[in-house]
Design a protein around this nucleic acid. Sequence first.
DNA 1: CGCGGGTTTGATGATGCTCAAGCCCGGTGG
DNA 2: CCACCGGGCTTGAGCATCATCAAACCCGCG
Lengths: 212, 212
Amino acid sequence: MKIAEALQLFLWLIPDALYMFELLLQKINEKVPITPEESAVCKTFFIPKKLRKKQYLLQEGDVCKYVAFVEKGMLRSYTVDDKGTEHIMQFAFEGWWLSDQFSFLTAEPSVYNIDALEDCELLLLTKPAEEEMLVRVPKLERYFRLLLQNSLIAIQRRLVSSLSHTAEEKYRQLLASCPGIAQRVPQHMMASYLGITPETLSRLRNPKNRKV
Amino acid sequence: MKIAEALQLFLWLIPDALYMFELLLQKINEKVPITPEESAVCKTFFIPKKLRKKQYLLQEGDVCKYVAFVEKGMLRSYTVDDKGTEHIMQFAFEGWWLSDQFSFLTAEPSVYNIDALEDCELLLLTKPAEEEMLVRVPKLERYFRLLLQNSLIAIQRRLVSSLSHTAEEKYRQLLASCPGIAQRVPQHMMASYLGITPETLSRLRNPKNRKV
DNA sequence: CGCGGGTTTGATGATGCTCAAGCCCGGTGG
DNA sequence: CCACCGGGCTTGAGCATCATCAAACCCGCG
């Protein structure tokens, strides 16, 4: 057996550990430069996990045990209101993080669902792993604070937008802030994210309805 | 001169230090019990400040240098959109905190304004003071993390509410979640907070318009 | 081929906005 | 002390936006 073949076999046996961390390390390095040694330490705390389309990472009523980093595929988090309508809180593409911060921190049951919109490769971090990791690589404190900040800003912007803009303006803003989303996310989910009905979104996409 | 007398004199000279910290310490103790010694340390980092009605704590374009704790009175933060309409992000009553987290953390110019809706007594904390305080009283890390969490949850709830509820439902929710607000906040400001026009709010408050 | 989910299209109605006028009340100056 | 002013609240009429309900359509898939 040649070495190349052996390597192939090896990769096949523990495929996750080898190739799944590239994006994570790249993203971290963008904000907080870390050494190769720190990278190596960092890797040890994550749990690689694959999720197939429509599978759940978190279901309403359960405690959110992980924060998830998306290496491949995409996730969404959403609530279901009293009328049974879904409200998408967030999409998470490659390179994004997703969890229910509140449930994760307090260990109380979540009001959100998280599921896969495409087949996914995720890196999961438990609370104890996160804490240990921050002790071993304190630089990452800064990285996680930046993440939290960014999510706070994003959601504030979205709130203002939802209070002051029309459906069409909100849609354009979404396309602008997240190019390519229309190619990957079904339309009725974008509608759910924007807080409008699928019919309305369909209509305002149709140029025939353009105002004079 | 006895020590007690000296203390009295000392307190007399800087009167703020005497009565202005009660609510702050009480609020902290509700979530994170601290010793009298820690309380004393804690006090030294805050800058007491009085603000008269309509005065600004932060103006759009400036860097947010402080987080403010409200001992008396009330504050609001808001943005002005391209059409010139104000959008109130948050009210802060006695015992609440307010700042622009983003500008405070990054030292970039803020997009928000913060001003006083009533004469106020505030306790201000600068970034260096905060950091030093957290070193001296590490228990407070937890307290501040809880604050951040709570604001994240609150704003998420508000977003879902703004996407899924009618003007009336949102108004009722506001009254329920913040009793007494109608007695202290002018109506057009509640409208601004809810993202509706003053006229609409006025109408849905009038029982004559009640649906059958 | 037929089924089913997602999207489109149409008709109708409710909700909330805009503009405009009137009202109430507290504050100011004569 | 009163008249006047102005800000905030109310009321009204008309209109734009968007939701609802229903039907048709499109297309991938078993």
